[in-house]
């Protein structure tokens, strides 16, 4: 494989990126080849050092997704970054995807409890349509709604901290893979 074929394959694998980002990355890699040639290294050596275009493209895509998630963290952007990192190797299924899914389920559970507490007056009314019983439990429901609201606000704050933690972990994972 020569430089042109390598770069054209890399271009093909980076099709998912927006054109301007893709062009920027392609320029970087073309410069990398030129710089290596000036330093007396052959194209073959450079290609060997870089690795297959598919793997390079996956790393670039993962980096881009992590960067995007870092700029505007949300469930979808963080999930995309996680999936892009998982695609780098089978090992990441265990060290990235499994903890991510498990922690996500935990958050779903906490939000579920909060939701249950907030709608508890409605549930109580379904359970006991009798007004007398509803009055007896009125203050319990008021407390449940209060705790539910606090839980929602607390969970939202925890979620943003969690997103930041996930992004840092993905960056660390990527740097670790780069070293290997």
């Amino acid at each position: 494989m020569n430089k042109d074929l390598y770069l054209s394959e890399l271009y093909k694998y980076l099709k998912r990126l927006p054109p301007d980002e893709r062009d920027e990355i392609m320029t970087d890699y073309a410069e990398h080849f030129e710089q290596a040639e000036l330093n007396g290294r052959s194209e073959k050596e450079v290609i060997q050092r870089l690795g297959s275009p598919r793997l390079v493209a996956r790393e670039v895509l993962a980096q881009t997704q992590i960067k995007k998630a870092g700029k505007s963290p949300s469930l979808s952007s963080v999930t995309r970054a996680v999936m892009a990192t998982v695609s780098l190797g089978l090992f990441n299924l265990i060290v990235v995807l499994l903890p991510f899914v498990a922690s996500l389920l935990l958050f779903v559970g906490v939000y579920g409890v909060a939701f249950f507490l907030i709608i508890s007056p409605i549930l109580l009314f379904i359970q006991n349509p009798l007004v007398s019983i509803f009055i007896n439990e009125f203050f319990l429901m008021v407390g449940c709604v209060g705790i539910g609201l606090m839980l929602v606000i607390g969970s939202m704050k925890m979620t943003s901290v969690y997103y930041k933690f996930v992004i840092r972990y993905l960056r660390y994972n990527l740097s670790l893979i780069g070293r290997i």
């Binding site: 203050f139 319990l140 008021v142 407390g143 606090m150």
Partner: peptide
Amino acid sequence: ILRFAFVLIIVAIIGNVA
């Protein structure tokens, strides 16, 4: 919302004790 939730919890505690 936090203030409102806090007020609800205080009302709930007083109401439940009564």
